[in-house]
Design a protein around this nucleic acid. Structure first.
Lengths: 215, 215
DNA sequence: GCTAAAATACGTGTTTAAACGTATTGTGCT
DNA sequence: AGCACAATACGTTTAAACACGTATTTTAGC
């Protein structure tokens, strides 16, 4: 019977107990060695001194959140395998966790069967995301662009014209000729773009305009 | 007992039979009305004249591939719910299918249980991706950047440093101070960046660098 | 190990372009 | 009519682009 050393990081005692109970229903195949931490700091102290086959970590933790905790864990133990276990399939939570290097993300309403499957998948070196979670990631690429387009910053039609031409690499003089304007007019439009996007030069302007999907 | 009208699009007879067999093991809860098409053209003729609750479509089909088939289906029946069913979790296949609007993507080695779960999830208006599949999508965001970085244009570590700082909006003078270099050195790196990316000013540089995932 | 090429660093000088600040006119809304 | 904003325009300063150069270190290929 395979021994699995598991660390559960969650600030709610009942949640930790619930996860343990879920795991115990699957104890036919595994000998679980379960440790617990109720916050990030405690978890980090624990992992400094012990190794774990897998670590389950919530996102919402007091002080250091889940992502920060994962970052620290991976700093001290870079090869740690970490599964995020959360109540929320919030896009921000998911992407923050993925960014810092978790190997999977599931919701707390997961079945014991699926929890084990997730753990096993991760132990095999693969990643595991609950179907709702991965759907959310994939969907939101489109939503993100939409949201950015609807962001507060609004440029006028003329400014947009100038911005797009600037982004092609044209000089203000060339843009002026193309739009049949004085070069000075284009200069000012450009200046106003810098003001609106709160940047001070063209490099930052183009970068920000790209992020805001203005190009 | 709920009636489900299903269309299976696959060019291999054995595969279609296999899917039918899988579905039949789940017939306790559903009355399946299964139709088949062995290629895209046939499928489109069929869907013009009949409605389906769900359509299962392979990616690799003769002549019109799965994505093209899905595009056509959604042209004629925009509200169709389509699940991709493939032997390959190739990134290209997956993204092509998602782009054209499938509601899920699973592999053919799926269990009957999970196939039904996928179908039910999609019928509820959600999306369903096999764990391997979604993992691949998420992973490849990073890989994509990597691939682009490995594209023909290759900038040196120092150039990359300068480029990133330029993109934040810093002047050459400020960058020089930050990197403990002479302003003239930064001038030269910047000039070399313009040359490598074949552009003539900062606006075009930042835009191209963004496109090439250098930032 | 040697050699050539590339990268890195830094320089002088000039020209072009952009940034910064200010002003006037036109437009749309109340 | 008045106001706020957009569009257009201008003068001065700063920054970037361009051209050409030298020197040292690092890298790649043989």
């Amino acid at each position: 019977m395979k021994r699995l050393r598991i660390l559960i990081i969650d600030d709610h005692r009942l949640v930790r107990d619930g996860i343990k109970t879920m795991l115990e229903t699957q104890s036919a195949n595994y000998d679980f060695d379960i440790s617990e931490a109720e916050n990030g700091e405690t978890a980090i102290e624990i992992i400094k001194n012990r190794d774990f086959d897998i670590i389950l970590v919530d996102y919402q933790l007091p002080k250091m959140n889940g992502a920060q905790t994962v970052e620290q864990i991976l700093f001290y133990k870079p090869k740690s395998k970490i599964l995020a276990l959360s109540n929320y399939d919030e896009y921000t939570y998911i992407t923050n966790m993925i960014k810092v290097g978790v190997k999977g993300y599931v919701l707390k309403n997961i079945s014991p069967n699926e929890l084990i499957k997730a753990i096993e998948t991760i132990l095999l070196g693969k990643k595991y995301y609950a179907s709702d979670v991965s759907g959310k990631i994939i969907d939101s690429e489109e939503k993100r662009e939409q949201e950015k387009r609807n962001a507060k910053i609004r440029i006028t039609r003329r400014q947009s014209e100038v911005l797009k031409l600037v982004a092609t690499g044209m000089t203000n003089d060339a843009i002026a000729k193309q739009l049949s304007l004085s070069k000075r007019t284009v200069d000012t439009h450009r200046q106003n773009l810098l003001l609106k996007l709160n940047v001070h030069n063209t490099a930052a302007l183009i970068k920000k305009a790209t992020e805001l999907a203005m190009l």
